[in-house]
Amino acid sequence: MTEYRLEPSSDATATPKRLAILRPETAARVLVDRDETVMTVPHLLLREIILIQICVVALAVLSLFFDSPLEGIADPTNTPNPAKAPWYFLGLQELLHYFPPVVAGVLIPGLVVMAMVVIPYFRTNLEDRGFLEGSPRRQMTLLTMFTVAIVAFLAAWRVWAVMVPTLVLYSAMVLPSLPPCPPSWRRRLVRVTLSDWIMTWFVAVAVILTLIGTFFRGPGWKWIWPWQGGVSL
């Protein structure tokens, strides 16, 4: 039988007395819910209606000023150069430029989806300990080794578009342990958890790759500037 802990609530006037039984590895504590509540009608309902109206108005204005693109009729014999996927897949298509199709088109997106699905089942760091809280030296060593490995790998494949954000994030992660870091920054950065760092890295990479694929790729998937080629969404 696992060990249980009894934790009495301290303010009996606000809340009826409750008993909570918690498993030891659960970090979440029951807090006293002192939040003020309001009626759903009208407070939530009106906000929702206004939100709906704002959304419709914004999109209607957008639709009045910008027409959807329509190119010539589909012609299998006339391959445009470059042939681009919808914008949200252009990050993948950009990866395809660096890695073989199995890696870029299957392995990487597959792993990303897998990782996303299993995130909540990894019950690590439930206390939300910051990455550099605790034993920074060991963390730093591990981080540096890991980053060097990744950067070496990316350099081998010449994936500069991923390498740059990786290095920027690495700098941000090690910044608190460097003397010139302003204390206010340090306070914040120190508390960022590893999972947040990883997610931020993923988002940065995804956004940068998508932007490059959408705006900076021209005929032959060569680098161009956005004003040199049109963009169709």
């Binding site: 407070h43 009106l46 206004i50 108005v57 209607a60």
Partner: peptide
């Protein structure tokens, strides 16, 4: 007071909503 402001916002956004939809 907050509820009154909400109603005001609601009326303004409703007018804008109708006007914008009439443009097309």
């Amino acid at each position: 007071p907050s509820s009154h402001r909400l109603w005001l916002w609601f009326s303004v956004s409703s007018v804008v909503f109708l006007v914008v939809l009439a443009v097309s």
